[in-house]
């Protein structure tokens, strides 16, 4: 399975007659961090769920790592890490038990060492044996990120990853994203938080009314330029 991590052509998706995505074209190369911006309801979460193979598109074509996403989905899922709006962790299991469960499903080698490393990274080594139900919002979010990184995915899909994180955790996440990017992993990150996402972005795309309305170079464009573009697009098309 060789090819760019993501090649999406005219992806479309609707829910009960409402067209959420109307034709998204997006290519993400290895080692790229693409930040998706967009107002509420723009289709960011829908797009990420399609890329995570949780949702089937109703139109267009999706090729992941050179393979049609409708074929060999299990092999593709092994290469994708997804952290959505909700943490996808069982509240009555501890953080370590949740990670151990997912490690089994993903066939992670030497799971105990990997889990210990990730809990330490997430600042949860002291809370790893506590039920997730007792975690704060920030702790839950860090556990969700640890879960997404558990199997060392080549493609990481993150939906609002900075929400609920304190400044230290934001810095740690930014650092981790930069390390993953340097190691050749690809990341697509949906957020409203331009200031926090811009430092890690290699490309920024604004999703509006179900398609990519603007794309810019994350390194060249500072946050003010991006915010101005965002406001113009949303105002023009309102």
């Amino acid at each position: 399975m060789i090819g760019p991590p993501i090649r999406a052509e005219r992806l479309a998706r609707g829910f009960g007659g409402v067209r959420v995505l109307t034709g998204v074209d997006l290519t993400v190369a290895a080692g790229e961090v693409v930040v998706l911006l967009g107002p509420n309801g723009a289709g960011k979460t829908t797009l990420l769920r399609i890329l995570a193979l949780l949702l089937a598109p109703t139109g267009g074509r999706l090729v992941l790592f050179g393979t049609d996403a409708t074929r060999a989905p299990a092999a593709l899922r092994r290469r994708i890490g997804y952290a959505g709006h909700e943490i996808s962790c069982y509240p009555d299991l501890s953080g370590a038990e949740n990670l151990a469960f997912y490690a089994q499903l993903f066939g992670v080698a030497e799971p105990a060492a990997r889990i210990a490393r990730l809990l330490a990274w997430a600042g949860l080594d002291g809370a790893g044996r506590r039920p997730v139900r007792t975690y704060s919002r920030g702790m839950s979010q860090r556990l969700a990120l640890a879960r997404a990184l558990l199997h060392e995915p080549d493609l990481l899909l993150l939906d609002e990853p900075f929400s609920g994180l304190d400044p230290d955790a934001v810095e740690r996440l930014q650092q981790q994203l930069l390390e993953l990017r340097a190691a050749g992993h690809s990341i697509v990150l949906a957020t409203h938080d331009v200031d926090r996402a811009a430092p890690v972005a290699s490309r920024i795309a604004i999703l509006h009314r179900g398609r990519i309305a603007w794309a810019g170079d994350g390194r060249a464009d500072d946050a003010a330029v991006i915010v101005a573009a965002y406001r113009t697009i949303v105002a023009e098309r309102a």
Binding site: R49, A52, L53, L54, A74, A75, R77, R78, I80, Y82, G84, H85, E86, I87, S88, C89, Y90, P91, Y102, L105, F106, G107, V132, R147
Partner: peptide, 12 residues
């Protein structure tokens, strides 16, 4: 709860 089904379906 917590959309754990997405975690299951996202696994291989």
């Amino acid at each position: 709860e917590n959309d754990c089904l997405a975690g299951l379906l996202g696994a291989p």
